[in-house]
Simulated assay, not measured.
Amino acid sequence: MKAQIATPDQELSFVQLFSATPRGARLARRLALHQLDEWGIPHGTETSDAVASVIAELAANAVTHGHVPGRDFELRLVLDGVRQRLRVEVSDARADRDPALRRRADDAEGGRGLQLVDALAEDWGVRDRGVGKTVWAEVKGPDVQHQLT
């Protein structure tokens, strides 16, 4: 398979369902890193490492807190050449959404993983979807900017 290097006017995307298990969460992170490499953002770069950490946290949360028996979680990556950002979306089937999710990112007693997401992402949030919710984060890094120019 030939690498697809992003250009400034492109939007590339990757979408995959994974089993809502720890193994599925690890596979999501690994396949995402492979996809970034295919898009011209190599393993071990600042952007790749940041996205890996964000995916690890959001996928672990989907498996741990968003798991519904018999339902998978979805990972979506969007490389936006115009805005020079990588958007990570992890959707799970659990409809109930913690209204304090954003506040927990600042809570010393919980949400430490979300503190990491908050530190690595330009912005992040939660939105409802038809079934369940989507937690999203946008990462902008020099690697994305470099690859897109």
Rank of each mutant, 00 (worst) to 15 (best):
L86C: 14
R103Y: 08
Q84R: 15
R112T: 05
Q115N: 12
A105I: 06
S91P: 04
W124G: 01
D123H: 08
G132M: 10
R129A: 11
G111D: 01
D123F: 11
R76W: 02
R129T: 14
D98F: 11
V126L: 15
V126P: 05
D106F: 13
D98G: 09
R129K: 14
Q115T: 13
D80W: 08
F73A: 04
L77A: 15
G130K: 10
G111R: 00
A105Y: 06
A100Y: 07
G141I: 02
G141T: 03
E74S: 10
D96L: 12
A119Q: 12
A137N: 01
R85H: 06
D72G: 03
V139Y: 02
D106C: 09
G132E: 07
G141A: 06
L86T: 02
A95P: 00
F73W: 05
R104Q: 03
V131W: 06
D123S: 15
E138S: 09
V90K: 03
G70N: 06
G113S: 06
A137H: 01
D106Y: 15
L86Q: 03
D123P: 02
D107M: 08
F73G: 00
Q115G: 14
V78T: 14
R103Q: 15
G132I: 10
V139M: 05
G70V: 03
A119L: 14
E122S: 11
V90D: 00
V90Y: 01
D72M: 10
R104S: 03
R71N: 04
G113E: 01
R112D: 03
A137G: 02
L114F: 15
A93M: 11
R103N: 12
W124Q: 02
D106H: 13
F73K: 03
P142W: 13
G70L: 05
R102T: 05
G110T: 09
L116E: 04
K140R: 11
P99Y: 10
W124I: 09
L116V: 15
R97F: 01
G125K: 14
W136P: 00
S91F: 05
V117N: 00
A100E: 04
E74Y: 03
E109M: 12
F73S: 06
R94V: 10
L75A: 03
L101E: 06
Q84M: 09
L114N: 00
L120F: 05
G130W: 10
E138G: 09
G130E: 15
R104T: 02
L79G: 00
D107V: 11
L101Y: 13
G130A: 15
A121P: 04
V90F: 04
L101G: 07
Q84A: 11
A93R: 03
G113Y: 04
A119Y: 02
A119D: 09
P99R: 10
D128A: 15
G132S: 08
G110A: 12
R97L: 07
R71F: 08
A121Q: 03
V139E: 01
K140E: 07
R71A: 14
D128G: 14
P99M: 05
P99E: 05
D118H: 13
D106M: 13
V139C: 06
